[in-house]
Every structure is written in structure tokens, then in C-alpha cells.
Write a protein that binds this DNA or RNA. Structure first.
Length: 661
DNA sequence: GAGCACTGC
């Protein structure tokens, strides 16, 4: 499925009549994929691996698993269809269940984190790619499945990329051992599939037509120096010329830019003459509260043009109907990772051609549309063809631990479609050795500790902290802290009410740092039984608190399976910090005589992030969860430690990195 | 005294 429109949109569509059985079957037969059914099944039957190129709205995601099921090709095993996003797995499973006239969880089910609806009856299973990857650790041959469809393969998420290697190896081993063969079907939206075909032993490529309307491309004559200004004038140019009720989607890079653009559009439209039609500007980005996000799906009042200003969330995750014009600035904010410094950076970059193509497609969903690219055609030609796959630009610690748990010892020899640099693989192995997850030999053998760590859906450092908590009798507290660290922004302070927010939140602050502050928030939250009202009064994000509680439950279950001792340290909170040091000793910083911090690992200057609970404090030693480079190198989620603790956590590590105590 | 794209287990 190319995209997902939140199910809640139906609330605004005015009709809640569910279609009849006949209507559903007619809709199925009306899909572009339907005439290709026979040819498609013939090819899929003939080949162990196939690549399917399906244009937008071809019906491949909902129909192909059903076609396979109807022929019995699955030999009474399951058919898995993976999606990069949870909502997609859920909504597609709901739709396909409806088409089969059954409840979700019977013949058709979905499996995503915290929500597994499958049963013994389930044969068609929609799931997130990360979920299948987790399952493969327990069963590398994927014996429950006869067919695995990897959907949205062009997005190249880190999970899909690892799954490519896992399914290929499972297929090979099953053939050798004479087990039921595994069929692999890779589904992609882009035409650039030579790499997929080559990787899966020259698998045949099947093309499916879609239902996309033509989109007219407009380029600028000159390269624009100020894309925000350029976007603003393009919006009003369209507004003056196009008939009303033809909506515009604008792609920008981030929250701040989007909010100022929305304000600018509102200001300019106030100055328009009264007889010109009205304009309604709406922001759309992931951290926008849900009730504000839903506004983009509502129809604008009669005679009003809707202008949605969005991040790349509107490229794939969210589909807005009735878009006639797309304004593409050609920019995107993306995370970059430097394996040498271990630094994450968010930078505004140029999009790839594939991304530009995806954006322009948003103008041709219901009828022919126009895309205004705010760059020249030559600029476009100079863009990279595809976005760099995630696996080439992120920290590989987690993935490496998972591959080792799968029994793959030689990570550098793993059959990656795009091989990460030797440096980033080596960096991950060094980290895992420091954490004690791998034996200190050359064969990359997992230690018993490492094997246990791999069972947790967490960064290896956090998994290590959980396992260490048993020794410090503080597992209850550590589970809470790790869960709180696994969600974004628990405390929010809107710019307009910043002082009010920090005043009410002052009661949570611990002089021991952010981790203990989170523990205080969690305890207070539990003290009022998770009251939504309490969250509101204290500027606590209720949705994220709920997620943290779900994560805590899942981590607790894993600890139970490992027979770990649940103990609480009560008021003796120092042991919590000592325990944290065992996962984060390599993220230590020390206070210099000049009152500034430098990192122990690289001796580079770092600073406590202004959002930290101990921003103004100057403890001699701190550890931190991550380093973010913006206007300076900021440490986020900071904890006060005793230098003896970090030394004790890894004496060998500090032999070459002396602590100046 | 700073601001943070998007996913996922």
C-alpha cells in the first residue's frame, strides 16, 4: 500500500454506510491488478523469487496475498506481507478481512508491536517489517511461512534491508534441507528495480499498471536562493489563477518553518481584496497534536482553498484527498550519522529524484494535477536517483546484535543488498564488545549476556542497563526509566506557555538528572492513575505516557521470561545511576576548570542541553544518552555520576582514557 | 539559554 489515510478521516466524510458484499467484489474486480491476475499467478508459481512493480493504487497490497491464498499456493502455511508502518499493516488487514467477509484475526490478521490479532485460523498475516525481523531471531528459517511478501521495498528501511538477507538465506537453507520452499515476492513502487532483481538471483520483474493521473511538471527558470519566499509567492500565484476548491500541498522541512509559513500565508491572505476567494492554511507534521493533525482531512468551507504545509510525513504516511497542486521546495530534513564521532545531526538536504517523484504524485490521485518544483530542471537532473538506504546512514549496534543472535557471525560477509562501510560495522562490534555482548575474541561469539540483550527491543546500551539492574536491586526503577527514554518528549512546553509549563514541572526535577526526573514523573502519573486531566495540567504528553507504560509492560514480560528478580531500591536512588553507568560509560563527560564539559571518549567540547533538568548545574561527571549537534554539541538526557562508577563499569576502557579525579 | 524530519521492535 502506497499510503495510508487515517481511518478516523471517515468521521468527516459524512457517510458511514459500509459497502455490501457485491459492492466489495465489484471494487476488487475493478482494480487495475485484476486483469493481470492469471499472468501474475502463473509467474509467481514458476519462480521462487519475483519482483512486482506496482504503481500507486494498483491493488497489489490487498490483492496479491488473497490471490495466492485462493490458489492454495501457501500449502496451508502462512502468507506474510510486511509493511514499514504500523498503520498500514492494520488498515490493510482490516480492508482485506472485509473483502473476505470475516473479522480481523480470523483468516486475515495483523501483527504489530503491542497488538497481535492473529489466530490459528490466520493464513494471511500483515505485519511490520520489524516484527518479522524479531520473529526471525526465534526462527531463522521462517518455517511458519510459505510466502513472504516484502512490500514498499523501495523505501529501504533498515528492517526491510536486513530482511532481504534473512529471507534469501532462509530460502536457500530450506531448499538444501528439503523443507517446504519459501517464496519471496518483493513489491516496489519505483521502476528502478535492477538491483532487486540481481540480488534475488535475477528474479523476473512483473509490472502492474496503476491508477495515477498525469501530473504536469513546472520548474523554475533559475535556482531559487530563498525557497521559503519562493514557496509563498508560488502559493499565491496559484491562488490567484486557479479555480477555488482546488487544494495545494506544500513540502517544507520542519516544524518551525511550517508554522512561520502558515502565519505568513494567513497574513498575506488578509491583504487580498474581499472579492477573491478565501484561503485556509493548515500545518502538518508528526509532532503536531493529533486533534490538529485531523484538521487537514476536513473539507474547507465552500469557496475556500485549503493549503496544507507539511513535512515529508505527507509523502508516504498520510494521504490527503483532493490535492490538485503540489509545491515542492526540493528540501528535506534528514538525520545523518558520523560513525567516527558517533554524532547524530539533523540537516536540511536536497531530496532524491525518487522523493521528488513521490511528492509530485500527490497531485494526481483523483484527477490530473500540477507540481511546481521550486528548482530548475538542471537542478533536478543533478539530484541523486534514490535516497540513501537507511542502513548506510545509521548506527549499526542494534542490527549487529540482532544478526549475531540470528547466528550470523561474519557481519561483513552478510549478504547485504547495500553493504554498510567496514568502519560502521567495526564500530558496532567494538561497542558491543565494550558492553560485554561479544566475547573478546575474533569470532564474534555472543556472550550469555549478549544473547539475553538481543531479546529486548532496545538499543544494546539500554538492554545492558536492564540486565545489570538485577545486580543493583533496582529493576523496577530501571524498567520505568528505560521505557520513558524510549518515547519522545514526555514533557512539552509550548512556546506561548513556556513559563507556566516549567513552573508546574519544577516539582518533578531531580538534582540527580533527567533519568531520575522521568522516574518522578512516572510515579506521580501512576499516583493519579494516569489521569488525562493531570497530564494536561502538568504539560505531560498523555499519549506518550501511555506508550511508555505499554513499553514497560513488554519489557517486564521479557524480564519475566528470563527469570529476573524484580526489586525496588526505594529511596536509594544512587544505585540507579550506578546501574546506568554500566550501559553509558562510553558517553561520559567531565567538567573542566573553565566550567565547560568535554567528552571523555573524544575530548571534544560538549554542553548540557538547555532542556535538561540539570541545565544550570555543574556536576563534575555526567553520562548522557545521546549527543546532538545543533548550534553546539549538546548532551541529551543527562545523569550525574561518580567517576568511580564509570571506571568500575569498564576498567580497561578507561586505561587509555584517564579520568581526572 | 535551545529547538527536533520520519519510522519501528
Amino acid at each position: 500500500m502506497e499510503s495510508v489515510t487515517p481511518a478516523k478521516r471517515q468521521k468527516f466524510s459524512g457517510s458511514n454506510n459500509s459497502p455490501t458484499w457485491q459492492e466489495i467484489q465489484a471494487q476488487r474486480q475493478n482494480l487495475p491488478i485484476f486483469p493481470a491476475r492469471k499472468r501474475l499467478l502463473h509467474e509467481l508459481r514458476q519462480n521462487d523469487s519475483s519482483i512486482v512493480i506496482g504503481e500507486t493504487a494498483s491493488g497489489k497490497t490487498t490483492q496479491i496475498p488473497q490471490y495466492i491464498y485462493e490458489t492454495g499456493m501457501h500449502r496451508n502455511l502462512m502468507i506474510a506481507c510486511t509493511q514499514p508502518r504500523r498503520v498500514a499493516a492494520i488498515t490493510v488487514a482490516q480492508r482485506v478481512s472485509q473483502e473476505k467477509g470475516q473479522d480481523v484475526g480470523a483468516l486475515v490478521g495483523y501483527c504489530v508491536r503491542f497488538d497481535d490479532t492473529t489466530s490459528e485460523k490466520t493464513k494471511i498475516k500483515y505485519m511490520t517489517d520489524g516484527m518479522l525481523l524479531r520473529e526471525s531471531i526465534l526462527d531463522p528459517l521462517l518455517k511458519r511461512y510459505a510466502v513472504v511478501l516484502l512490500d514498499e521495498a523501495h523505501e529501504r528501511t533498515i528492517h526491510t534491508d536486513v530482511l532481504f538477507g534473512v529471507v534469501k538465506s532462509a530460502q536457500h537453507q530450506r531448499r538444501q534441507r528439503g523443507i517446504t520452499p519459501l517464496k519471496i515476492i518483493v513489491m516496489s513502487a519505483t521502476m528502478d528495480v535492477d538491483q532487486f532483481s540481481r540480488y534475488f538471483n535475477d528474479a523476473p520483474v512483473l509490472y502492474l499498471e496503476g491508477r495515477q493521473f498525469p501530473v504536469k511538471m513546472m520548474y523554475t527558470c533559475e535556482t531559487q536562493s530563498d525557497y521559503q519566499f519562493s514557496a509563498l509567492s508560488t502559493i499565491f500565484q496559484i491562488h490567484q489563477e486557479a479555480p477555488p476548491r482546488q487544494d495545494i500541498l506544500v513540502f517544507l522541512t520542519g516544524q518551525e518553518e511550517i508554522e512561520s509559513m502558515v502565519t505568513a500565508i494567513r497574513d498575506v491572505s488578509k491583504e487580498l481584496s474581499d472579492d477573491s476567494s478565501k484561503i485556509l492554511a493548515l500545518p502538518m507534521y508528526a509532532s503536531l497534536p493529533q486533534h490538529l493533525q485531523l484538521r487537514v482531512f476536513q473539507n474547507a468551507p465552500k469557496g475556500t482553498r485549503k493549503v496544507i504545509v507539511a513535512t515529508n510525513i505527507a509523502e508516504t504516511s498520510v494521504t490527503i484527498r483532493n490535492i490538485k497542486f503540489v509545491v515542492d521546495t526540493g528540501k528535506v530534513k534528514a538525520k545523518t550519522f558520523n560513525p567516527r564521532s558517533g554524532l547524530d545531526m539533523l540537516k536540511v538536504q536536497k531530496t532524491s529524484k525518487a522523493q521528488a517523484w513521490q511528492r509530485s504524485g500527490r497531485a494526481g490521485r483523483e484527477s490530473a494535477g500540477t507540481c511546481y518544483r521550486l528548482y530548475t530542471e538542471e537542478d533536478y537532473e543533478a539530484l541523486p536517483t534514490n535516497t540513501r538506504p537507511e542502513i548506510l546512514r545509521c548506527n549499526l549496534c542494534s542490527v549487529t546484535l540482532q544478526l549475531l543472535a540470528l547466528g550470523i557471525k561474519n557481519i561483513a560477509q552478510f549478504d547485504f543488498m547495500d553493504k554498510p562501510s567496514t568502519e560502521s560495522i567495526q564500530n558496532a562490534i567494538v561497542q558491543l564488545k565494550l558492553l560485554g555482548a561479544i566475547e573478546n575474541t575474533d569470532d564474534n561469539k555472543l556472550t550469555p549476556l549478549g544473547r539475553k540483550m538481543a531479546a529486548f527491543p532496545l538499543d544494546p546500551s539500554l538492554a545492558k542497563v536492564i540486565l545489570k539492574a538485577v545486580d543493583f536491586d533496582c529493576l523496577e526503577e530501571i524498567l520505568t526509566i528505560v521505557s520513558m527514554l524510549s518515547v519522545e518528549s514526555i514533557m512539552h512546553s509550548p512556546a506561548s506557555k513556556r513559563e507556566e509549563a516549567s513552573a508546574v514541572q519544577a516539582k518533578f526535577i531531580s538534582h540527580e538528572g533527567d533519568h531520575l526526573t522521568y522516574l518522578n514523573v512516572y510515579r506521580s502519573y501512576k499516583g493519579v492513575s494516569g489521569s488525562k486531566n493531570w497530564c494536561h495540567e502538568n504539560f505531560i504528553n498523555a499519549r506518550n505516557m501511555k506508550t511508555a507504560c505499554d513499553i514497560r509492560g513488554q519489557l517486564r514480560d521479557i524480564c519475566m521470561k528470563q527469570d529476573m528478580q524484580f526489586k525496588s531500591c526505594g529511596r536509594e536512588t544512587a544505585v540507579i545511576r550506578e546501574c546506568l553507568a554500566h550501559g553509558f560509560f562510553m558517553n561520559a563527560a567531565e567538567l573542566q576548570k573553565d566550567g565547560k564539559y568535554i567528552s571523555v571518549a573524544s575530548r571534544q567540547p560538549v554542553a548540557i542541553h538547555p532542556s535538561s533538568a540539570i541545565f544550570r548545574c555543574k556536576p563534575s561527571y555526567v553520562i548522557y544518552n545521546e549527543l546532538v549537534k545543533t548550534s553546539a554539541c549538546y548532551m541529551r538526557n543527562v545523569c550525574v555520576v561518580d567517576p568511580d562508577w564509570i571506571f568500575e563499569a569498564a576498567p580497561n576502557y578507561f586505561k587509555t582514557r584517564p579520568l581526572h579525579t
